[in-house]
Computed example of a mutant assay.
Amino acid sequence: MYDVIIVGARCAGASTALLLARQGVRVLLADRVVFPSDTVSTHLLHPAGVAHLRSWGLLDALLASGCPKIESIAFQPAPELTLRAAPYPAADGSTLVLAPRRTKLDLLLVEAATAAGATVREGVSFQRPVWQDGRVVGAEFRDRDGRAFAEQAALLIGTDGRNSEVAKAVGAQVLRDEGNFGCQYYGYWSGLPDNGAQVFVGQGKAVLAFPTHDGSHLVLVGWPRERFEEVKRDLERHFLDEVEALAPEIRGYLTEENRTARIVGSGDMANRIRESAGPGWVLAGDAAVAKDAVTAQGIGDAFAQAQSLADLLPAALAAGPAAVDEATAAHVIGRDRDGANGFETTLAFATGGGGDALGPIFRAIEDRPELISMFFGVYAGRVAMGEFAAAVGAAG
């Protein structure tokens, strides 16, 4: 019998397994894929998320894997206006941003969880929870050869993404659904100069470029959701046309010779909060709170939720089922409190409230790097839009 079964071994699940196993919790971490494995992702990890990796002792290993440091951001809301500054600092004062390939980051986390003592089962699919007297007491799985097996645990943690099978199986209700407003596609190209993270926006669309593993840059294009079907029908043309329109200096590098991977993406950018805890179960990461990728807060959110669960669960697991349920309920309350600003900010940007409408403010802060950095803090979910606007007004 395990103390905890975690379904989904990417950022939320593997980091939760790592932190719990380090405290002596008996953890089973299961995923249907075998790592290293890629997944659609914005890649970007804001300074607060990087700070988690540093505190867990994993930052040096990620950097050693070839993940380049990003120490500045250039935001271009108009062709004649570029705002450049350091990212908004984490609580420890660090301004470092990273954009790791998920094949590297997720594998690092899974290996760290294994080294900490977690049992990792790859290539197994979650089938259903095991119930006893109205409480989840384990989970059933099936391996790639079709063999079924079940494991017992005091707590089932679902970290299996936006379309969480755990959430469906435990009947987690959607408490808030704000809609789906965007779609994005991205690819990788070599040969681009390292100018930090670059963001170009206009007319409801965006182009992002930042360095990632293997000497490549990720180049991403985001459109309004109503363009999704049109874009899919001729993806290559639409992608390159938007880069040409918003970031012509980037377009020249996007040649077939420089391409290192195909263009991939998603139209699933729903902004949704699910019921996230119940008797013997809890959800974390995108399974609990899904947000539009426009603000690239997902990986950082996953790390913060993993740390919260790791802070609350070990003592509760030792105290019994009632204490476990109290701990998961407290986790959800804290998550909603700490993440409210990030959710609302993401929703504002996803619906067009953070782009063209801010033109006058952007021009007012063009020569104020401390205010530009603060605006980047809005994107990262660390600064409320009202707080930023007040600081701009106070600066004259």
Score class of each variant (00 low, 15 high):
G179A: 15
G359T: 12
A153Q: 02
F343P: 00
G138L: 12
Y2H: 15
T295N: 10
I372P: 07
G278F: 02
R337I: 09
G49V: 08
A12I: 07
V378G: 05
L98P: 01
D214V: 12
V97Y: 01
E249W: 08
D194E: 10
W281H: 10
L240M: 15
E111Y: 10
V221C: 12
A14L: 08
L156E: 00
R144V: 13
A150Q: 15
G215I: 02
V392E: 07
D325C: 09
G320K: 14
S308Y: 06
L192K: 07
I250Y: 02
N341G: 11
A310P: 05
L107M: 11
G196D: 05
A116L: 09
A48G: 08
H52I: 04
L18K: 02
G339F: 01
P211R: 04
T42P: 01
E326P: 06
P279T: 06
A357V: 14
A209M: 08
G187N: 11
A288S: 15
V34K: 10
K205R: 15
A61E: 05
A319G: 07
V25D: 04
K205V: 04
E111M: 11
L254C: 10
P68L: 03
A115S: 11
G13F: 04
F228A: 06
E151F: 03
I73Y: 00
A302K: 01
F126M: 07
L108N: 04
V166G: 08
I6G: 03
R84C: 14
S65W: 03
L313M: 08
D338K: 08
E244P: 14
G123W: 10
E275Y: 09
R225C: 03
L98Q: 05
L218F: 06
V170Q: 06
Q152Y: 10
L105W: 00
T82K: 10
